[in-house]
Design a protein around this nucleic acid. Sequence first.
DNA 1: TAGCGTTCCTAATGATCATTCGAAATTAGC
DNA 2: GCTAATTTCGAATGATCATTAGGAACGCTA
Lengths: 219, 219
Amino acid sequence: MSARSRRASHPKSAITKQRILDAAARAFSLNGYAGTTINDIAMTAGMQGGSIYYYFESKDDILQEVLDVGITRVFSAARLAIGSLPASSAFSEKLEAAVTAHLTMLLQQGDYTSANIRVFEQAPPAVKRQNRKLRAAYGEYWGQLLSEGQRSGEIRKNVDLTILRLMLLGSMNWAVTWYRSDRMPIPELARKFCEVVLKGVGLSDDQPESSSRGRRARS
Amino acid sequence: MSARSRRASHPKSAITKQRILDAAARAFSLNGYAGTTINDIAMTAGMQGGSIYYYFESKDDILQEVLDVGITRVFSAARLAIGSLPASSAFSEKLEAAVTAHLTMLLQQGDYTSANIRVFEQAPPAVKRQNRKLRAAYGEYWGQLLSEGQRSGEIRKNVDLTILRLMLLGSMNWAVTWYRSDRMPIPELARKFCEVVLKGVGLSDDQPESSSRGRRARS
DNA sequence: TAGCGTTCCTAATGATCATTCGAAATTAGC
DNA sequence: GCTAATTTCGAATGATCATTAGGAACGCTA
């Protein structure tokens, strides 16, 4: 019978499949997509290379699942973090919760999430296309969070929320290239991120102009 | 005679070598390192795959040069941008100049710079090691810029400059994954980046605490 | 136009992998 | 313990590439 027809129908099968995906996520996040071989994954999962094909149709198939799980997990983590706050919480509280959740999945727990961030760009078009749907949904979630912050007045009206979102997610995602857990705990990092974004780094003297066009006042 | 002994000693040779590097930079930035073959590069450069080896010892050798040029160019662009400002310029002016230069090299001109950002993580250890030296120097340059801004009082004293630098460069570098030139010109993008970083997105009401420890006041 | 250094071509070579497949081994149901 | 289904093995297969090497074409100089 083909792998497709029976895949993961039995309990042991499901567990082994997880083991393979775990191994793949770790390997992808460490060595990139082209840099990890089916044999690498198989050996970490305790089997021979050929056996992988009992569970997956192709290497791309594994990649797809790892990438999708990666987004699904950060998304869940962010939702959970915000959802477990009192509904009356200030935007700044929610933001910090979401940032902490995202950074945690990216830097501490998630081989899947970090694999996604590191490897997405190297993925074949078809794989990217599918994963982009999940990414878009996650991005929209952040968009709503920021939008809410703007409605409540905690974000100035003239801030471009799209750019803000991309900056925020970008600076977080980039952390995957430099973060070392022995230098600073995640919550502290998250706090600093939020502080920069919310308060800025300059002295807060000048009021924000309400028209969106004019450049900085000429000193 | 070996490629090494005579490489680029003649004028034509130097030009052709440039052509190869240009083709490689573009291909790397589009398809990643493993995703581009020697033949891809050669064809774009108007020659056969084997001929590449008259100019370079290996694919890694090409990668090394592309990566190094990538950093060298943003570095130069940033230095030039800041250097051509009046020496008395405010920190915010310098910052915007540097951000504009960085984003321009990354998103508009530099196949080399964008190749570096996209492909560095996939490079073999030896190549990374060498390029990291240049990256460190560039990072230090930004560190000095920020440090100067803090000394002059335009950045609050209690801001962690290391985190700020990593956030700033991270959000810029990440733009390589989403920026589309038809949506917003670089200078406008740079201005928005700087506005977020300098002023933050929140209403500037609360004074910054001077002790660095305490968390946000409890509402 | 002969000679020499240069640039480039072309056809190997050899290594690395993803993927396949038939058979062996293991497990579960009875 | 027998049988059938499930899981794994292990040895091909074939494709893709980086890299090599010997020779051909090109261009310059005398």
